[in-house]
Every structure is written in structure tokens, then in C-alpha cells.
């Protein structure tokens, strides 16, 4: 399991653990946090799953495609990621994730 703290757009924090294997986007959706649209269902094509991630350990670097798509969001910042591109792995360090504002 991976420990997650998700801050939704209203500012509420959701603390839970999600199993390894799926993406962060899927974990957020399954938890019933509905701010995340994820319109392309995780195929790195829409950028509607934009989040800000603070990881307490190293994350796999983002792909060029993810980086390029993030260039198109209006509020890219330090820690900007596409939640569908972060694969949760067992033993991963906890993540603190803030859902980015709506485009």
C-alpha cells in the first residue's frame, strides 16, 4: 500500500492508502474525490488530471510527453504532474497531492 494525502479543490484533505499497481489518478477517483476529470482515462492525452505532488522520496521522472502536455496547463508549478502517469508501487514513499485548479 502507498500512503496518500489528497487535497481537493475545496481544500479538504483526504488521507488513505492505495494498493500498488494502479495509477495515482485511479486511486484518487476510486476514493471518491471527484475534482479530477481525467477525461482521456489515463492515456496521457488530455491533461485534465493535473496535480501538484510533494513526494517524500524519489519519483520516476516524467516522460517527455507528460512534460509537453504540462506545458499547456495554465498553472504549471514546481511539482506539477499528470496523476495518470504516476504509477503507485508497493513500498513507495508517501505522497501529498493537491488537485490543480480547473482549466
Amino acid at each position: 500500500m502507498v500512503d496518500l494525502v489528497i487535497i481537493d479543490r475545496a481544500g479538504s484533505a483526504h488521507e488513505f492508502s492505495a494498493p500498488g499497481g494502479g495509477s495515482l489518478m485511479e486511486a484518487v477517483r476510486a476514493q471518491g474525490i471527484y475534482d479530477i476529470k481525467a477525461l482521456c482515462g489515463g492515456s496521457c492525452s488530455c491533461a485534465t488530471c493535473h496535480v501538484y505532488v510533494e513526494a517524500s522520496g524519489p519519483l520516476k521522472p516524467m516522460s517527455e510527453d507528460e512534460n509537453d502536455l504540462l506545458d499547456g496547463v495554465s498553472e504549471r508549478r514546481e511539482g506539477s504532474r499528470l496523476a495518470c502517469q504516476i504509477v503507485l508501487a508497493e513500498g513507495m514513499a508517501p505522497l501529498r497531492v493537491t488537485i490543480a485548479p480547473e482549466e
Binding site: 496521457c44 517527455e64 510527453d65 507528460e66 509537453d68 502536455l69 506545458d71 499547456g72
Partner: peptide, 12 residues
């Protein structure tokens, strides 16, 4: 095709 950079730039 396999070109997210153009996609994003093109949208703008």
C-alpha cells in the same frame, strides 16, 4: 502523432 508538444502549442 506522438507529438504532445505540437498538440499543446497548436491548441494555443
Amino acid at each position: 502523432v506522438n507529438n504532445a508538444r505540437d498538440y499543446v502549442g497548436g491548441k494555443a
